[in-house]
Simulated assay, not measured.
Amino acid sequence: MVMNFLFLIIAYLLGSIPSGLWIGQVFFKKNLRDYGSGNTGTTNTFRILGPSAGILVFAIDFLKGTLAVWLPIVFHANGWSPIVFGLVAVLGHTFPLFAGFKGGKAVATSAGMLMGFSPVYCLFLLAIFSITLYLSSMVSLSSVVSAGFAIITVIVFPAFHFILPEYDFLFTVIIVFLGGFVIVRHRENIIRIQQKTENLVPFGLNLTKQAPIKK
């Protein structure tokens, strides 16, 4: 039990590492909060600091979720599902101790958590994300659509023993919560999508004909 509480703290601190904020300040002398959307996550890092920094931030944020899930497995801390530690890392990423409790939108770290706990399901949702990104040219819409698919499929798939072979109550509750959480965190993006002013990536079909406001 003591080990579990210790790993919960480690998972939160791991999630709290504000990779985008620190990389911007140390290597680019820029505070991401002063540029673009003001978010310190992967998308704004790509937009402001470039692809290399964006890929690095995504990798770090992704691994935070995976490592948190692996912690209790590697050290044989029994009693609690590893998904709990992944959830705590996601919350740390979103409300980071080291960045004034203002963090990212939970997408990359949630994906990393899923990769550590249910890799095939994670790859399924990454495929949904990738297809939506190509069709829409929007990371935000891709995140929201993937979150919606997660909420639906975590309930439906076990009934057909597809990808998720059986119901895991705790896993289901956490995925439904995180799916809703990701959607809520993107509420400003959703408004911009409705107004057709959402930011785009430089590829894809932009089927919804977004026209971002130039700044």
Rank of each mutant, 00 (worst) to 15 (best):
M1C: 09
V2D: 14
V2F: 14
N4D: 12
L6G: 10
I9R: 12
I10F: 13
I10L: 15
I10G: 04
A11V: 00
Y12R: 09
Y12F: 12
L14Y: 04
W22R: 04
W22S: 00
V26R: 15
F28L: 00
K29Y: 05
N31V: 00
D34Q: 14
D34K: 13
S37V: 02
S37T: 02
G38F: 01
G38Y: 02
T40M: 04
N44W: 07
F46C: 00
F46V: 05
R47F: 08
I48Q: 09
P51M: 07
I55P: 00
L56V: 08
L56F: 14
F58K: 10
F58E: 02
A59R: 13
I60S: 01
D61G: 00
L63W: 08
K64Q: 07
G65K: 12
G65A: 07
G65F: 10
P72E: 06
P72D: 03
V74G: 00
V74P: 00
V74T: 09
A77N: 05
N78K: 12
G79T: 13
W80S: 03
F85H: 04
L91W: 13
G92V: 08
T94M: 11
L97R: 13
F98S: 06
F98M: 11
K102N: 06
A108G: 01
T109F: 06
G112N: 07
G112I: 02
G112C: 04
M113L: 14
L114V: 06
L114S: 10
L114E: 13
L114F: 14
F117Y: 15
S118F: 11
V120H: 12
C122L: 05
L123F: 15
L125K: 09
L126G: 02
F129D: 11
I131K: 14
S137I: 08
V139W: 04
S142M: 04
S143N: 09
S146F: 03
S146I: 02
G148T: 02
G148K: 06
F149H: 01
T153Y: 13
V154E: 10
F157I: 08
F157G: 05
A159W: 12
A159V: 11
F160V: 03
F162R: 08
F162T: 13
I163A: 01
I163E: 00
L164F: 03
L164A: 04
P165Y: 03
E166Y: 11
E166K: 14
Y167I: 02
F169Q: 14
F171N: 09
F171E: 13
I175K: 09
I175R: 10
I175L: 13
F177C: 04
G179M: 06
F181H: 11
V182F: 12
I183P: 01
V184F: 15
E188F: 11
I190P: 01
I190D: 02
I190N: 09
I193A: 06
I193L: 15
I193Y: 06
Q194W: 12
Q194P: 03
K196H: 15
T197H: 08
E198R: 03
N199V: 11
N199A: 10
N199Q: 12
F203N: 03
G204E: 01
T208A: 15
K209Q: 15
Q210S: 14
Q210A: 14
A211F: 06
P212S: 00
K214I: 14
K214G: 03
K214L: 09
K215L: 09
